[in-house]
């Protein structure tokens, strides 16, 4: 188990290094950073001064190592447009994005699993057909359109929910949360649904397919022959066996939920990292773009690692196969 974790961690470091190279390359190929900092009429000598002070005259590998060393310490440079350290900007925006992503994931997992189990058990009921239709909508409509439709319905027409922003937030240390105020919670509803709808339909369809598959297996037949209650069979024996693929989807999708939050955040003007990134792209603010890239990669890699470890918690068969040297 330890060897497995270490091996996975080494792979993760490899992936992060590769992403680091790409992020670093952005600085080299997206124009001269000095031009972004100094004004148009700065004399050449002064430009050289800036260049030297930033270490941009060093050989490329040296610069790369320095960039990595600084990144590891959380120093991603200074934003061109805000003139603030990128790490401060990201730290300020991160709680908004994470809260949104977590709420969307909880929403999609809870409803996806419930709907999936129900429609797997009652294949022909009316409600199942409703779920199937809803899931078709969720899978085929693009996120921004769902967001706009929700805004039109609940914010413009009915006036129940705010159409943009986070509402009031409460500061707990460096973390700003919208979970503790009524307006903050209200503001979270529509973006969470918009962001989570696609994952919800995905989870529902996977749970449904897995449930139907598992119910046909011999051990479910044998559980019935042993006279176990229907509840124990469906929720103890069948549901647990559908969990491995669900964990994969929830885990891997959590990364894309954060990444896709860009669209939802833009639609709802949600003050998170995604919105920051979109603004950075518009203003060629490379330090923010590079840092965002590294951060998303880090989140993806961390989640992948967590998912792999979670598998072994659910499925005992993996524990032995992992222990065996391959």
């Amino acid at each position: 188990m330890l060897a497995f974790t270490i091996r996975r961690a080494l792979q993760a470091i490899g992936v992060l290094l590769a992403v680091g190279i790409i992020a670093f390359a952005m600085f080299r190929f997206a124009g001269d950073p000095v031009n972004q900092i100094v004004s148009l009429d700065t004399p050449a000598a002064e430009r050289e001064q800036v260049r030297r002070s930033l270490g941009l005259d060093d050989p490329v590998p040296v610069q790369f190592v320095r960039y990595l060393a600084q990144s590891i310490q959380g120093d991603f440079g200074v934003s061109y447009q805000f003139r603030q350290p990128v790490s401060d900007l990201l730290a300020e925006r991160m709680p908004a994005t994470l809260e949104l992503a977590i709420c969307a994931t909880i929403f999609s997992t809870v409803f996806g699993v419930l709907m999936g189990v129900y429609s797997g058990l009652r294949r022909d009921s009316f409600l199942t057909k409703v779920f199937q239709t809803v899931s078709l909508v969720g899978i085929s409509l693009p996120t921004f359109l769902i967001g706009i439709l929700l805004i039109y319905l609940f914010a413009v027409t009915l006036g129940w929910l705010p159409s943009y922003g986070r509402g009031d937030t409460v500061q707990i240390g460096w973390w700003s949360t919208g979970l503790l105020t009524v307006s903050g919670l209200k503001a979270l509803i529509m973006p969470s649904i918009t962001l989570g709808l696609f994952q919800m339909t995905l989870i529902m369809r996977i749970v449904r397919a897995e449930m139907m598959e598992v119910l046909r297996t011999d051990y479910i037949k044998f559980a019935r022959a042993r006279g176990l209650t229907t509840r124990a069979i469906h929720f103890g024996h069948a549901l647990k066996n559908t969990l491995v693929p669900v964990i994969t989807i929830v885990g891997l999708q959590f990364g894309s939920v954060i990444a896709f939050a860009i669209i939802t955040e833009t639609v709802f003007q949600w003050p998170g990292m995604g919105l920051l990134f979109v603004q950075a792209v518009q203003n060629v603010d490379i330090p923010i773009m590079a840092a965002y890239l590294m951060l998303v990669a880090l989140i993806f890699v961390a989640i992948n690692l967590a998912v792999d470890i979670l598998y072994t918690v659910v499925d005992p068969r993996l524990r032995t196969t992992i222990r065996q040297p391959t």
């Binding site: 011999d218 051990y219 044998f222 647990k240 066996n241 659910v314 499925d315 005992p316």
Partner: peptide, 11 residues
């Protein structure tokens, strides 16, 4: 049942 390999819940 016939197949003891699949009659028991693996989890």
């Amino acid at each position: 049942f016939q197949d003891p390999l699949t009659s028991l819940n693996p989890l």
